[in-house]
Design a protein around this nucleic acid. Structure first.
Length: 470
RNA sequence: GGCGUCAUAGCCAAGCGGUAAGGCAAGGGUCUGCAAAACCCUGACUCCCCGGUUCAAAUCCGGGUGGCGCCUCCA
């Protein structure tokens, strides 16, 4: 099993700290707004990593967090008049619902910043005691970046480099502009907790360090997140935790690429987010997953016209084949949980490509050949086609694919696509069918043109016709 | 300015030193009254540019160019 490690900028053979066990943590969402496609993507990727490691025989503990207190949440609270804690709790519920719709499994452990205030304060106190952090007169507490020799090791920066671009906000009392806040004193009317430094709230970076320590102890195997978190968030996590423990925090740092729209990253400040929920109104969750997993997780994905349409087309095609196989050899024979058998080649090939830094792109491209083969076998009456389908379902469910009943999937996508066909179009189509039956081709073609002009297409089959919106 | 990352056919994309996977679109064919669907066939003398290493480079090294990301919040 090879995994790309951002720390070393290389693929490395994965070996956990403790034989057979994996501790992994992925930075979750700051719940100041609805889940966008990038959040869904990140949740999907780490769920897949977890599941594949489990498939390799590891007992995986996978923790994810919700950052449920921060500046943007406080701002939203002010805007809406809803108390910050209520706003965050509602948003978490909303995001959980959307993730369930996307069909990504829950982590082993959910962590929330506001449920770990005690752990955070304890962590900060220890950092102050060991000289790595200092309280300022205004009630803030900062981490002293110069106290951690390796600061910058993940993002490859030196403290001197950082002084260039750093911004100092009004009211901050840092010794060094690159220092970052562990604790922020409460301003008027802000949600806050009691601390040795007065009323306030935790900084973003310390939350993840403290929650990791609470959930796992001093060291973990894999720490992941979006690539935009490398600096400063993950850099700061390393500084905090390693300053406290003197040990390497995470063995592997993994970072997924970002989802871009029109060549630009989706971000809160640009306000160009594509909401997951909206996407799921238009496409099945499996189509969305297929589209996202066609690119390796470390690359960015630029959302272009048609990537989801194309993916939906593929999933529909695959399910159409499955339905045919079911019709031919029986539904039970194609079901993932119908006992042994299957096609071990499909599974071992999948394992081989996924073992190379989770190469989902190759795993998906195999599907085209697999289904071509299944079609061929089915046409030839070879009932091992059903074994292949069963194997595809069993193997590829790890990527969140082929989990649905074929007929249901097809009906659902057809319904989503089709919408309501206007009466006028239906009449024209019926008239055309009659003209066709009378072998009046000119009339039939004229009617087709009329239907076409209304934005619909008629497709004939042996015993009838279907109307689709173009 | 610093750091990082990417650059492969019209488009998406794999590839990580051994002579360019896969998909979409396009073209041709079979089938069809015509279409659609399905099936079959066709595509990069070459991997942004220039040097270098090597028997061998899209893949390694050096130098350019361009895109994107981070250095404010961000998955």
């Amino acid at each position: 099993m090879k995994i790309y490690n951002t720390l070393t900028r290389a693929k490395e053979e994965f070996k956990p700290l403790e034989d057979g066990k994996v501790k992994m943590y992925a930075c979750g969402i700051t719940v100041s707004g609805e889940a966008h496609i990038g959040h869904g993507y990140q949740a999907l990727i780490y769920d897949i990593m977890r599941k594949f490691l489990e498939k390799q025989g590891y007992a995986v503990t996978y923790a994810r967090n919700y950052t449920d207190v921060d500046d943007k949440i406080i701002a939203k609270s002010r805007e809406t008049g809803i108390p910050a804690d209520k706003y965050a709790a509602d948003m978490i519920e909303n995001i959980d619902r959307i993730m369930a719709r996307f069909d990504v499994d829950e982590p082993t452990v959910w962590l929330k910043a506001t449920e770990n205030i005690g752990n955070i304060i304890d962590f900060i106190e220890k950092l102050i005691a060991s000289g790595h952090a200092y309280p300022a007169d205004n009630g803030d507490v900062y981490f002293d970046v110069t106290s951690f020799r390796r600061y910058g090791c993940l993002s490859n920066r030196s403290v001197e480099d950082m002084l260039d671009g750093v911004r100092v906000e009004n009211g901050e009392q840092k010794r060094n502009p690159a220092d970052f806040a562990l604790w922020k004193a409460a301003k008027e009317g802000e949600i806050s907790w009691k601390s040795p430094w007065g009323e306030g709230r935790p900084g973003w970076h310390i939350e993840c360090s403290a929650m990791n320590r609470a959930a796992f102890g001093e060291q973990i195997d894999i720490h992941g997140g979006g690539r935009d978190l490398i600096f400063p968030h993950h850099e700061n996590e390393i500084a905090q935790t390693e300053s406290l423990t003197g040990k390497q925090f995470a063995r592997f740092w993994t970072h997924n690429g970002l989802i871009k729209v029109n060549g630009q990253k989706m971000s809160k400040s640009l306000n160009n987010s594509l909401l997951l929920n909206d996407l799921l109104d238009k496409y099945s969750n499996e189509a969305v997953k297929f589209a996202l997993l066609q690119t390796n997780y470390r690359n960015d994905i630029n959302i272009t016209d048609g990537i989801f349409d194309e993916a939906e087309k593929h999933m529909t095609g695959f399910y159409t084949v499955i339905k045919k196989v079911e019709g031919e050899f029986g539904k039970a024979a194609c079901s993932a949980d119908s006992g042994s058998g299957g096609n071990p080649e499909i599974d071992s090939r999948f394992n081989a490509v996924m073992s190379d830094d989770f190469n989902t792109a190759l795993a998906l491209s195999d599907l085209f050949g697999i289904f071509k083969n299944i079609s061929r076998k089915t046409a030839a009456g070879d009932k091992t086609a059903a074994d292949d389908v069963r194997q595809v379902r069993a193997t590829y469910s790890l990527l969140g694919l082929f989990k649905k009943d074929a007929a249901e999937y097809l009906a659902e996508t057809a319904a989503r696509r089709g919408g309501e066909i206007p009466e006028r179009v239906k009449e024209l189509a019926a008239a055309r069918w009659n003209a066709k039956a009378a072998r009046n081709w000119a009339e039939a073609d004229a009617l087709r043109a009329e239907i076409d002009a209304l934005g619909y297409a008629v497709k004939d089959s042996k015993d009838g016709y279907t109307i689709t919106e173009k």
